[in-house]
């Protein structure tokens, strides 16, 4: 089971790294099959190994020998030198307490590679975050749920509509009852405000293409093809009004049955 998966994870590491640590790393993965968090852990380490090869491999043979010379001079005790021939290692050198020379190097190549990988990571992260933000539901909005409006907040018959931004609807009260009008223009979807001082009398007036709708949401002007949509609403046994903002009803005309009697 873990065979192909382990091999795939191992392939994330640079070739030189795999030559040294590949076999035992696969054995380890077989001993403890990696979960999702381990997979991320392995990915991060693989990226690190690619970005900072100097941390695990001596930059060049010359430096390796220079370091070895330093260490052999400095080491007083039995400084263990890797047994030759046991294993192909490019950089298995005792460095004592001194920081390896390779660590201090920051070559143009390193810089360019870091810049390239960094910008790719930033670009991928940015678009990933955008996709995630776009595809996850808006956490602060209650739009789509049922909104309870206490009966005391329902506007009086004939009064100006009241806006419920949480549910994206206008509440209006006429002789037939209460209507919850979805505030989205049926033309191209702009948010429609109530304009009590409109030139041709109070109405919902779309700011985008000047569609006008009367109190009942019926189109009276402009390019909108149909009345504002209504949201399904009802009165609870306690007498409160419930508006289901997840149940939007498309209509061709106003009918008194669309209004909720209080």
């Amino acid at each position: 089971m873990t065979g192909p998966r382990g091999t795939r994870l191992l392939r994330l590491f640079p070739k030189a790294w795999r030559e040294v640590y590949g076999a035992e790393f696969l054995a380890l993965i077989e001993d403890c099959p990696p979960g999702p968090r381990d997979a991320i852990d392995i990915l991060v380490s693989a990226v690190d190994a690619r970005l900072r090869p100097s941390a695990w491999i001596a930059a060049s043979r010359q430096e390796m020998q220079r370091e070895r010379g330093l260490v052999l001079q400095a080491a007083s005790g039995p400084a263990p030198v890797p047994e030759p021939g046991t294993r192909i290692r490019v950089g298995g050198v005792a460095a004592g307490h001194s920081t390896p020379v390779a660590d201090r190097r920051f070559s143009r190549r390193t810089f360019l590679r870091n810049a390239l990988v960094g910008s790719v990571v930033v670009a991928a992260g940015g678009s990933g975050a955008a996709i995630f933000a776009y595809s996850s539901p808006e956490p602060t909005s209650t739009f789509g749920s049922r909104i309870v409006v206490p009966i005391s907040e329902v506007p009086a018959v004939g009064a100006d509509p009241v806006k419920y931004a949480d549910g994206r609807f206008w509440l209006i009260h006429n002789d037939d009852g209460v209507l919850a009008l979805h505030w989205r223009c049926t033309h191209l979807g702009c948010t429609v405000p109530w304009e009590p001082a409109d030139a041709t009398g109070p109405k919902f007036r779309c700011p985008c293409h000047r569609s006008g709708f009367n109190r009942l949401g019926e189109r009276v002007e402009g390019p909108a093809p149909r009345p504002l949509d209504v949201m399904n609403a009802w009165v609870t046994t306690e007498g409160d009004l419930v508006v289901d903002t997840g149940n939007i009803i498309v209509r061709e005309t106003y009918e008194p049955s669309q209004a909720v009697r209080l």
Partner: peptide
């Protein structure tokens, strides 16, 4: 994690 383990092992070994 296995990645962290080997990241550290490789560094420690390089350092001797």
């Amino acid at each position: 994690g296995p990645g962290t383990l080997y990241g550290a092992l490789a560094r420690l070994e390089t350092r001797g």
